[in-house]
């Protein structure tokens, strides 16, 4: 596949190296020729000096033959403009733009541009580390505050049903992984130890969810 990346900052260069290592053809565009130093010696792709919001620059970079387009400059407005040029003038099928502002990210998604919002995702990951959360934030829906979380069933909870962990309107179990097999949860599905569950959790129920999967800590120095 041929991927065109606009913006050779930390994210742009890291992504370029990842895709290059996977054997894809990668072209990186940046206004600052010094930015390409981040790509390192091993990078086999191409670089183009210029602004990513210019039709001619993108054409020169091969946008017309690109399978995917990624806009990761440090400006949200530049990213959406580059993405719109890619979509409407080059008809690139897969377009992803990094948008720091969650509100605008949602708006741009309506235009058919996939947006990634590091603000929401980053904040959620920091919260999880801070709370020593027993789950991984799988996917953050940045158009709402609802979070998708995974947790592992403890021995003490083996034999409980999906409905025992659900809270109407706040916690919903979506899927269960047992070893390598994954199935969609039903209310009466019986859970076994070390089953992994994927739940959709409302913001006000996050600590409640955490408590269900964290061993109650015995206060030190008591008894």
């Amino acid at each position: 596949m041929r991927y065109l990346i606009v913006g050779c900052g930390r994210v742009g260069s890291t992504l370029a190296k990842l895709l290059d290592a996977d054997g894809h053809e990668v072209i990186v565009v940046d206004e600052d020729p010094n930015a390409f130093k981040r790509l390192g010696q091993k990078f086999k792709g191409h670089v183009v000096v210029g602004t990513g919001i210019d039709y001619d620059v993108l054409k020169h970079a091969g946008a017309a033959q690109a399978d995917g387009f990624i806009a990761v400059t440090n400006g949200d407005n530049r990213n959406v403009m580059a993405a719109l040029i890619a979509q409407r003038m080059f008809h690139i099928k897969k377009i992803v733009a990094r948008i720091y502002d969650p509100t605008r990210g949602m708006m741009y998604r309506e235009l058919g541009i996939d947006t990634v919002c590091p603000t929401t995702t980053g904040a959620k990951m920091i919260r999880d580390v801070l709370m020593e959360a027993p789950w991984d934030t799988l996917q953050s829906f940045d158009f709402g505050k609802v979070t998708s979380l995974t947790a592992t069933i403890r021995a003490a909870d083996a034999g409980k049903r999906v409905s025992d962990f659900e809270r109407a309107g706040r916690i919903r179990i979506a899927a269960i992984r047992t070893g390598k097999s994954v199935r969609v949860a039903a209310n009466d599905t019986v859970l076994a130890e070390s089953d992994e569950i994927n739940a959709i959790v409302a913001p006000e129920a996050i600590s409640e969810f955490a408590q269900m999967f964290t061993d109650a800590r015995v206060p030190e120095g008591v008894g």
């Binding site: 919001i53 400006g75 959406v80 403009m81 605008r104």
Partner: peptide
């Protein structure tokens, strides 16, 4: 003075 900023103003206005 920036096309990208003007574009975003138009996007928000249209919406």
């Amino acid at each position: 003075g920036d096309d990208e900023d003007n574009l975003v103003v138009c996007l928000i206005t249209k919406k």
